[in-house]
Design a protein around this nucleic acid. Structure first.
Lengths: 234, 234
DNA sequence: ACCTGAACACCGTTCAAGT
DNA sequence: ACCTGAACACCGTTCAAGT
């Protein structure tokens, strides 16, 4: 028993006699709290209250708050769908996976702050990695390239969605109309006239921010997949 | 004056008479504290102590802690280098940028938790976006494709490095030898024999984790750039 | 085996008061 | 104009004590 990574998943879980409370129940409440009140809204005391127990009861089921977050994190991974790559072809399967991953992250924006802090070692994350590996193997990748392709694709999704989440958060949940958007940029980007002009121009042309983001996501995804296909031919 | 995004950069800064203390000095101290003690190590009280003042003095220069973090975040963007794309060609310039961005993030791992929480509206981020736009314009991208290319590339870098940071953090600064690495995975991935076998195999072959990560980064970067070039030809 | 409340050592932020 | 300390409303976590 040498040094280990600190994670819920490296510890043996409690036998889970499940008398009244259970780890399952706690995770569900945690997810609830995170989804409604965000990462800052989650505290052991609030969680305890929601479970009708003392805050410190939770420490019986979980070593600390980070473990709780790892458990919740794992649930998000469980929501991501990867279709069977045999049937529609690997590119379609992987593309659907990417969109599903983006949707899951946007549904649970608090993951944006977790990805840089907690490792994804839960069964759901590993299962997905396993299936993604199979998709890329089927595509024709060999050896380490399978893992590289894996990493590259998920990295792209992470990297697109994480700043999306930050953007959403900074608007505090309120929709920003086009005018105040431009006002903000005028203030912020006044030393970068080219950039500013560009943003105002785009804003004028495209009113639906969500659609723009989706298009941008699709562009980069197609680009990444094209690149992967090119590597397959080489 | 309609609704604005909440950010340091949308407020007029203090006149900055700079008698004793200054925003500059505070930002430097903040960076110091973040780099040595991490995001959790930064508190207004500790920062005040480091500046030889009361904790609440900082609130004269900054509205709240998030603004402080935005200021620090901006500094990191300032460290990223983007070579003149005219000279070595856009692909080389953009590639150097990506590596420089990764290096800056690894130097300041706390950014990993910020990217999903704070918008990057500081002058350094905008200046970089401006220059990156120019590089992609020079490459031959037109209209919105310039912005899409921009987003895709930076997303890739973000997405690769952020989990790298999480991984590093979860090892608590200690190097993990190969054996305990395998031990960890055996515990965690016991339900995914293929994945497990693969990881152990790779670990046996490649001892230098840093080098593996760099290779993986280079692979995805090349893939993304290939994809972008393909789009240019289309 | 499970749950509790008190207690400890922290937080960010407000604000009246000082110079 | 700038800085202060006290105070408020929180935190995560430990631990002796309860059932």
């Amino acid at each position: 028993m040498s040094k280990q990574i600190s994670s819920v998943w490296t510890r043996e879980p409690r036998p889970a006699r499940t008398p009244g409370r259970s780890r399952e129940e706690i995770v569900r409440a945690t997810l609830d709290l995170l989804d409604t009140e965000g990462l800052d809204g989650l505290s052991m005391r609030k969680l305890g209250a929601r479970l009708g127990s003392g805050a410190t009861t939770i420490y019986w089921y979980v070593e600390n708050k980070d473990e709780l977050l790892e458990l919740a994190y794992n649930e998000v991974w469980g929501e991501i769908v990867l279709p069977d790559p045999e049937e529609p072809g690997w590119r379609e399967a992987v593309s659907a996976f990417a969109h599903s991953m983006r949707a899951a992250m946007l549904r649970h924006p608090w993951v944006g702050s977790l990805i840089g802090r907690l490792p994804a070692l839960g069964p759901n994350a590993l299962s997905l990695a396993d299936r993604l590996r199979k998709a890329f193997t089927l595509a024709g990748f060999k050896g380490l390239d399978i893992d590289y392709a894996n990493a590259a694709l998920t990295a792209y999704v992470f990297g697109m969605v994480i700043p999306e989440i930050a953007w959403e958060a900074s608007m505090g949940g309120e929709e920003l109309d086009q005018e105040s958007m431009n006002e903000t940029f005028q203030k912020v980007a006044k030393d970068f006239p080219d950039l500013l002009e560009r943003v105002v121009e785009v804003n004028a042309k495209i009113s639906d921010t969500d659609a723009l983001r989706e298009t941008s996501f699709a562009f980069g995804l197609a680009t990444m997949l094209d690149g992967l296909e090119a590597r397959l031919r080489a």
